[in-house]
Amino acid sequence: RLHIEVEGTELMKKLVEEAKRRNLNVRAKVENGKWIIEID
């Protein structure tokens, strides 16, 4: 499991799109103003 903290929506969208393209499980949520992304 990969755990990433990202500031900025554009970067988050790119990460999520790339993960979906590779058929990975992606969860994204906002915590303290940062995107928290978990990829399995």
Score class of each variant (00 low, 15 high):
Leu11Val: 09
Lys13Tyr: 10
Glu17Gly: 07
Leu2Tyr: 12
Ala28Asn: 03
Thr9His: 12
Leu15Gln: 01
Gly33Met: 03
Val30Asn: 14
Met12Tyr: 08
Glu17Ile: 10
Asp40Asn: 09
Glu18Phe: 14
Glu17His: 09
Ile4Glu: 03
Val6Ile: 09
Arg27Asn: 06
Gly8Met: 13
Ile4Thr: 05
Ala28Gln: 04
Leu2His: 08
Glu5Asp: 07
Asn23Tyr: 10
Glu38Gln: 09
Ile39Gln: 01
Ala28Pro: 02
Glu10Val: 07
Lys29Tyr: 15
Asn23Gly: 15
Ile39Thr: 02
Arg21Asn: 04
Ile4Gly: 04
Glu17Lys: 11
His3Ala: 09
Glu17Ala: 14
Glu38Met: 10
Ala19Leu: 15
Val30Phe: 15
Ile4Asp: 04
Asp40Met: 12
Ile37Pro: 00
His3Leu: 14
Lys20Asn: 06
Leu2Gly: 05
Glu7Asn: 11
Arg27Thr: 13
Leu2Lys: 07
Glu38Ile: 14
Ile39Arg: 01
Arg22Ile: 05
Glu5Val: 15
Lys29His: 15
Lys29Asn: 06
Arg22Ala: 07
Leu15Met: 09
Ile36Trp: 03
Asn23Gln: 07
Met12Ala: 10
Ile37Asn: 01
Val16Ala: 03
Arg27Val: 10
Leu2Asn: 05
Glu38Val: 13
Glu10Lys: 12
Asn32Arg: 04
Ile36Tyr: 06
Val26Thr: 01
Lys29Leu: 07
Asn23Met: 10
Val16Tyr: 08
Lys20Ala: 07
Lys20Pro: 00
Lys34Gly: 03
Trp35Asp: 00
Lys29Gly: 05
Glu18Trp: 15
Lys20Tyr: 07
Ile4Met: 08
Ile39Lys: 00
Glu10Gly: 08
His3Thr: 15
Asn23Lys: 12
Gly8Thr: 15
Val26Asp: 00
Glu5Pro: 06
Ile4Ser: 04
Val6Gly: 08
Leu24Ile: 03
Thr9Ala: 13
Lys34Met: 11
Arg21Phe: 06
Lys29Met: 09
Glu17Leu: 12
Ile37Val: 08
Val6Trp: 07
Lys29Gln: 06
Asp40Val: 12
Leu24Arg: 02
Glu18Thr: 06
Glu10Asp: 11
Ala28Trp: 13
Arg21Glu: 03
Asn32Gln: 05
Ile36Met: 04
Lys13His: 10
Glu18Met: 14
Val16Leu: 11
Trp35Gly: 00
Asn32Lys: 05
Asp40Lys: 06
Trp35Phe: 05
Arg1Ala: 11
Leu2Trp: 15
Arg27Tyr: 08
Ile37Ala: 00
Leu11Asn: 10
Lys29Arg: 15
Arg21Trp: 05
Leu15Val: 11
Gly8Arg: 10
Thr9Glu: 14
Glu31Leu: 13
Met12Pro: 01
Ala19Val: 05
Ile39Ala: 02
Glu10Met: 10
Ile37Ser: 00
Val16Cys: 12
Glu10Arg: 10
Val16Trp: 08
Val16Ser: 03
Lys20Gly: 04
Gly33Ser: 03
Glu18Val: 09
Met12Asn: 01
Ala19Arg: 01
Ile37Leu: 06
Arg21Tyr: 05
Ile39Val: 06
Gly8Pro: 05
Arg27Ser: 10
Leu15Asn: 00
Ala28Lys: 03
Arg22Leu: 13
Arg1Ile: 14
